[in-house]
Design a protein around this nucleic acid. Structure first.
Lengths: 124, 124
DNA sequence: CAGCATCCAGTACGATACTG
DNA sequence: CAGTATCGTACTGGATGCTG
């Protein structure tokens, strides 16, 4: 029973959370996971659906998500080859856990923007 | 009323959330904010308290948090100069919004680790 | 003490070309 | 179609030294 009402937790938890944020705070992980909510998608589908992503980053990010068990990869032995990516249950719970942050971002976005403008203005 | 039960939201929300994650997913922001939960701290106090942070990154990260309005900076016109950093109300609500993610990280950490090992092992 | 400027290594990312 | 390899660039973060 600690006095902490905020999720700072012990040092170990902090380290984990920081690593998690770094891991997931890259350019494309979140977009891809969000994109896959609608159901499985193929490589090229994703490439077209996600605006601005490069071939290379799509491969890399999918690999990384697959490695962590958030996304599953299914290859069908056909010609031409077909590979489908889908959200795993783990990936779905992950998206759910973001709710708090997403809501906070929506709620405070204007306020943060305001702070930034003011700060930048004051600095000459 | 959309079919989305997960916080993927519209494209605008997605972009905001991604930017938020990037902004906050750097090496030190989260550690600093967590550290300040206990109350205001001085520059050198933070430098000592946060293990591994460099002088430069402390300045930079504090600036950036101040800019976003998550942290307040109070300079006392004394000699030697004294500056105290504290969490703003906005900063506190931010920490609160992380609860879901922190819990998810704790709950699934072992599972994710397991996935990684297995993945790395399979890749010969 | 608090903060800034400079320099440097590591990495993230994009463009492109090539393989099964 | 899906994936790998190579290259160039831009940014991030650490070490260090200077200023008020």
């Amino acid at each position: 029973m600690e006095r902490t009402s905020t999720p700072c937790g012990d040092e170990r938890t902090q380290r984990h959370t920081r690593q998690l944020l770094r891991r997931v705070g890259d350019t494309w992980s979140l977009v891809l996971v969000s994109q896959l909510v609608g159901g499985p998608m193929r490589f090229t589908e994703l490439l077209r659906a996600v605006d601005g992503i490069s071939h290379r980053m799509l491969t890399q990010t999918l690999r990384s998500l697959e490695r962590d068990g958030l996304v599953s990869r299914t290859a069908y032995p056909e010609t031409p080859p077909r590979v489908e990516y889908a959200l795993t249950p783990l990936g779905q719970t992950f998206l759910g856990s973001l709710t708090g942050l997403v809501v906070w971002g929506e709620d405070t976005q204007a306020e943060v923007e305001e702070h930034r403008s003011r700060f930048d203005a004051d600095r000459h």
